[in-house]
């Protein structure tokens, strides 16, 4: 009976860990998207340097997160990281497609988070 109780407790623990993981990923993605949105506003106001600085902060937050580096698929990690660098390049070049780039980066970040969320689409 002890073994079965331990198994049930372990399953509950795993479920709680999975729930925490989902919340953490969503919270981090929201924070990063918020920082990208701030960078976008700064760029729209003509402050390209401020936008790049804000984006750098978001990139550092993304790269320094050891848990996400271990928990997410490397393809997702690489896509978002590449998205950050591509957007920094667009800002530096004052490219006309900069605003689209901001949207794309936010979509990449939220897409990486959505792939961790349980939904009929992701399960089936």
């Amino acid at each position: 009976m002890k073994r079965e109780l331990a198994a049930a407790a372990a399953l509950v623990l795993v479920c709680c860990a999975a729930a925490w993981h989902t919340l953490f990923v969503i919270r981090t993605a929201d924070e990063l998207c918020g920082m990208v949105a701030e960078a976008e506003r700064a760029y729209s106001d003509g402050d390209a340097d401020g936008a790049a600085e804000r984006l750098h902060e978001a990139l550092e937050l993304w790269l320094d997160d050891g848990y996400l580096a271990a928990a997410l698929r490397h393809s997702e990690l690489d896509s978002v990281t590449q998205g950050f660098f591509d957007q920094l390049e667009l800002i530096a070049e004052h490219s006309p497609s900069c605003h689209v780039g901001f949207e794309r980066l936010k979509e990449l970040i939220s897409g990486a988070a959505k792939s961790e969320l349980p939904s009929p689409g992701s399960i089936f």
């Binding site: 198994a7 049930a8 372990a10 399953l11 795993v14 271990a70 928990a71 490397h74 393809s75």
Partner: peptide, 17 residues
């Protein structure tokens, strides 16, 4: 490219089940 957790977590869940 697949996190190691993606291999270990199913083992734990299957063991418990």
């Amino acid at each position: 490219g697949i996190p190691l957790l993606n291999g270990l977590l199913p083992i734990v869940v299957l063991l418990c089940c």
